[in-house]
Nucleic acid binder design. Structure first.
Lengths: 410, 410
DNA sequence: ATTTTTTTCTCGACAGTCGAGAAATTTAGT
DNA sequence: ACTAAATTTCTCGACTGTCGAGAAAAAAAT
């Protein structure tokens, strides 16, 4: 459905554009903004004075003049314009981070998670407590928190912040919006963890390649298997999606997965699955909830020493991943694949299987093997993805609501 | 990447919007356009007088006044504003259609295709001859042909009109752009056939459901297997993609497909594959190039009479389709699936297998079975999809180039 | 003939962008 | 010390676009 455009919309869009280059490059002068947006100097003046009046950006103190001519006046976001809370849910802990509008980390702590499974309600209460705590510690008023950005492994509703399925709570859905609503009036967004990794890598790639960047997939290997895809959108930044890759069907009537279905990719490539086949336990055994990484390291060591069975377990895992990726590539365009997560330490053992699995499909035989790269520091990427995504959401919201309102009353 | 907006862009967008409602609803009066676009009457005046001057739309002769008040003046596209040639390539023929700017069919004929495989170059020559012929028959000058819209089964490059792989020519790529370029200056677009079916169904659905429409997949069953996906875009109409579904991996080291790979979905669910398993021919037999439908009808008749082996062949085909669809759903959101093509006549035999195949994956077990509907008249949908897509491309091109140029010189 | 009703057209107000040039402010040169 | 050059920011008028209100047009009803 096409919708009508108006001159006001033009201003909104261009304001968001100005904020986004400010975010990408840090404090910038009038002229620099004009250059990197393509907007004329006059327009930049109009937009920046508006944003300044609305207390969203500020003129920075002049730095020592370098070169001749009138010294530049740098513009930057006002740090105290608003705040963001990032909540990263992982299998053994929940990390809370308070970030200001300029993207600077102010406070952070982690809380251990009890592994009791009957705890969806209890977990929500713990998150509420964590949010209160980080707010208390920093003496920031609650209204200043503009956004709460949450991530988890698992399947997420694309329109509402509802965790539909997760490795920990299974089908016990968690609706974060309604869970936080009476207490918090901030907007709440929820994303799949690997999606954020993809978003972060995509943003990095776009800085390097510019308009040449087309798309990218991030594959996260760990206790569970996640996938995020990021594509370059037409107008509106990037388009991202987080398929349910770990529980895509690998083989009908195959090994039992912890989700209860048979034959998921995770039932071959998740840590517990590798352990299971390394110990030659029957594939219909109910898998372990949690596997210490040390345990897997031992198996990997044996595999590297040339033991057949553990090597075969990694190879099977690679095959499942390769087949799954080849299926994804049959449904999308050709794109590079970035592998992250704790599982990357076994990439030497997985690689052959992955490549063989990829090679079994028509699309890969035709287009050739996709580029595969291993990227460490998944945690950093997750946080970076949170910031990219959350701050651009905030920018948009602030322009749509904030500028108008303040302008009208001022 | 965000890009800057300008007031001129606003006019462009709104002009396209006006043309698109004119296309959807036929001839409309000033007031009606204003109502259905949301633009003010004054703006409609400005835009329509501009389009009229540029000879893109015209005031229709007044029809008998109904009701009192000033009689309405209907606006409609000028049929002679430009023309479109639709080329539908199927396995046994190529159909050429000449359509005017209002979407009205002016001329049409089909040409048989020789089945000689060594004919990519020869085929291109035949298409050139066909295009010349339809132009000659209708006495329209070549410059008036604004767009040539081509469709084929197979894999298509998403940015250029290049047929990357097709059931008939295999990996003999055909670049229609360069093949037609010296002779024709019209824009050339190429789409996968099932993609156009999805586009047509999506457009129909959007008319019924309006903003509630989210996405839809079309599955085409025949000698080969095709899939098209249509999603509702943010601003810019609909987003469509045509994955390489027929050659997605169904089962590693499975039956030999005519693409040369083993285990493709088509190697189980294509007509030739059903024939192969119904006759219990080994799965690594090089499959027949072409299977008469009558042959398959016989097998279906036997299956319906309760014979085990032919029934099993259809069931296997259904399983491959179901597993493939479940994999697609693991990578996208939940969406209804429309099944088209000559294979729908065997849907009674395929259905159980499809549902079982779908049910083997986590996502379907969680979200429930997707809605499946059988839609006949694939040929009509393909043509409808061509028109939807081609005419909106023309509208955009005309507004971007046409209006500006004529305004400047007039 | 006049009034009512409906549609189309036109005008002035307002929002936005742009180019050009004025104003500001510093460095370099004499 | 003064002037010229350089560079950045700011301002003004022109242009494009949308909108609301009301005038103008045109037919039916009274």
């Amino acid at each position: 459905m096409l919708t009508k455009s108006s001159t006001e919309l033009v201003r909104q869009r261009n304001s968001v554009l100005v904020l986004s280059v400010l975010r990408r490059h840090g404090a910038l002068a009038h002229t620099e903004i004009s250059d990197s947006t393509g907007l004329s100097s006059a327009t930049i003046s109009a937009i920046t004075t508006e944003l300044e009046k609305a207390q969203i950006i500020e003129k920075s103190e002049q730095q020592p003049a370098s070169g001749r001519g009138r010294p530049r006046v740098l513009l930057r976001q006002r740090r105290d314009c608003g705040y963001l809370i990032v909540v990263i849910i992982s299998s053994d802990a929940v990390q809370y981070s308070l970030v200001d509008y300029a993207g600077k980390l102010i406070d952070r702590f982690s809380e251990e998670r009890s592994h009791d499974p009957a705890g969806a309600a209890r977990f929500v209460a713990a998150v509420r407590a964590g949010l209160s705590r980080i707010l208390d510690r920093s003496k920031i008023s609650q209204e200043k928190v503009l956004l709460i950005s949450i991530s988890s492994k698992g399947l997420v509703n694309s329109t509402e912040p509802v965790l539909v399925w997760s490795p920990i709570f299974g089908s016990d859905q968690i609706d974060f919006e309604s869970a936080l609503r009476p207490e918090w009036q901030a907007k709440v967004i929820l994303d799949n963890e690997t999606l954020l990794v993809a978003a972060a890598l995509g943003a990095r790639e776009e800085i390097v390649k510019g308009a040449d960047f087309r798309s990218l997939a991030a594959l996260s290997l760990g206790h569970s298997v996640g996938l995020g895809i990021v594509k370059r959108g037409n107008q509106t930044g990037q388009e991202i999606s987080a398929p349910n890759f770990g529980h895509m069907l690998h083989m009908a009537n195959g090994g039992l997965c912890r989700c209860g279905t048979r034959g998921c990719i995770e039932a071959y490539a998740g840590f517990y699955a590798i352990l299971r086949s390394a110990f030659e336990v029957p594939l219909d055994t109910i898998p372990a909830k949690f596997v210490p990484v040390a345990e897997l390291d031992k198996i990997a060591a044996k595999a590297r020493q040339g033991h057949r069975v553990p090597a075969f377990a990694f190879r099977q895992a690679g095959l499942a991943l390769g087949n799954g990726l080849s299926r994804m590539l049959s449904l999308t365009e050709r794109m590079p694949i970035a592998i992250t997560g704790p599982g990357t330490r076994y990439y030497d053992l997985l690689r052959q299987g992955i490549e063989e699995g990829l090679g079994q499909s028509h699309i890969v035989r035709m287009e050739g093997m996709p580029e595969i790269r291993v990227v460490a520091d998944e945690q950093i990427l997750v946080f970076e993805g949170h910031l990219n995504r959350a701050l651009s959401v905030i920018d948009e919201d602030i322009v749509v609501s904030g500028v108008q309102g303040i302008q009208a009353s001022g």
